[in-house]
Structures are given as C-alpha cells and as structure tokens.
Amino acid sequence: MRLQNAALGAAGLAAFLTLGEALPRIGLVKEAYFPPTSRIARAFADELADGTFWTALGDTLTGWALGLVIAASAGIVIGVIVSVVPYLREATASTIEFLRPIPSVALIPLAVLLYGSELRSVLLLVVYASFWQVLIQTLYGVQDVDPVADETARSYGLGTWARIRHVLWPTALPYVMTGVRLAAAVALILAITGELVMGAPGLGARIAVAQNSQAVPEMYALIVVTGILGLLINVGARTVERRALAWHQSVRGEVAV
C-alpha cells in the first residue's frame, strides 16, 4: 500500500516535471519567461554549488525556526492562561478576533520602521502570523476538556497545576499540534515573503535579486527551493505530531489498520 502510494507520487511528480519541460519546448509558453525544467535544474545545481546560497538558506531557516519557537511558546502559554483564568476568555475574545485577521504582510511598513531590513523585522512578521494559529488551536483545545474528567480530577484533590498537566494538556495537545503544524507552514511563507518584500537577508531577498536581474531560471530554481523547504517542513511537522500524539486515538487508529 505504502509502496504503491510512493510510486504514484513519483509518477505524478515525473509527469509534472515533463510537462514543465515540454510546454516551453513546444512554444505554448515562452522559454524566456518560463524556462524548461532542465534549464531550471541546471540553475538549481549552480545554486547548490554557491556558498552564498547556503548562508541565505541559513538566514531563512533561522528566521523561520526562531519565529516559530517564539510564536508557539507564546501561543501555548497565553492560550492556557486565557482559558484557565476566569472571565479572561470573554474579555479577550473580541480583541483576538480583531487582531487575528490582520494580514502580517500589512505590518511590513511597521517592521521596516522599527527594525529596518534585517532578521528582527522578518521575525515580527513570522511571529505575528503564526502566533494566532497556535493560540486559537490552544483555546479550542482547552475548551474541549471533558467536564467530567475535570470534575473527577478536582474531587481527587488535584491542584490547578496538576489539572493543567494531567487533564487539560493531554486534551489540548492534539489541537496544539495542529496549530503548530499550520504555524510552521505559515512561518515559512512569511519568512520568505518578508525577505522578498523588505530585502532582509535570506532566500526571499535572493529571489528578489534574481527577479531584478532578469535571471529567470535562477529565480525559478530558488522558488523550487522554497517549495522543497515547505515540503520538508510539512513532513517534519507531521512526524513530530505523530510521535507526540502516539498515545492518541487519532494516531493509534491509523497505525492499527
């Protein structure tokens, strides 16, 4: 079953790449603006051989990782506090709903004003965008706590901390993990967008330079890199999620079949 899936996936990718090679070759799209796969692959190989590419990749991953860690920790802590402290949820609900839909990209002028075009301005965007993903999921997760389980814990004399640890956290964890997985993807998008628009060092800035330089194959090669990064991050996040929730029925069910 698994082998068949992998084979199908590879076949799909191969078809996609062949299409990318064929369309410009037969002239359906102009080669100058959409280079064939082989030309992009050559630019991709050139990138991999270039030391500055790796520092740019490192910059992007730093922004992504730091941003995600900050956003996830803040989202979880604030989410639990907001849900546990009486009346806080009601008091903050409208503010959260107001702030949450503000696109991070709209904060670019603010980020530039505060930090110029460097890592901190990218972090601002990344943290703002991914924080809400984690916070909202944490809030929902905590809300999902079984009142009977909570009451039982209370009647057994468990304190606030012990109830958070043994009742609230296991219930909320699957939600939190979903939030972190979404946040990981959003963080990557925002890290690259921030670099692309503001020029902070990283893959995004490299894409912008390639664009401004009319270096079309190089630009697509870098875009492919961001796609691969996104794929790896998604696979990684799913693995982490599966391992963290190995005890949970949603994951156990999957494995038992």
Binding site: T55, G58, L61, T62, L66, S117, E118, P201, A205, V240
Partner: peptide, 26 residues
Amino acid sequence: MRRLLVTLAAGALMVTASACGSSGDP
C-alpha cells in the same frame, strides 16, 4: 515527549548555528 522536545530544541540550535554567517551583513 521529552525526548522529542530535546530533539526539536537541538534542531533549532543547529539551524541557528549553521546560520551564523548572515548573507546580508558580514
């Protein structure tokens, strides 16, 4: 779970360390 967190933290550290040299400002 604990081992997982340690792995994650180590990963984040590695990423940060590998990015010591920034491409923008030496």
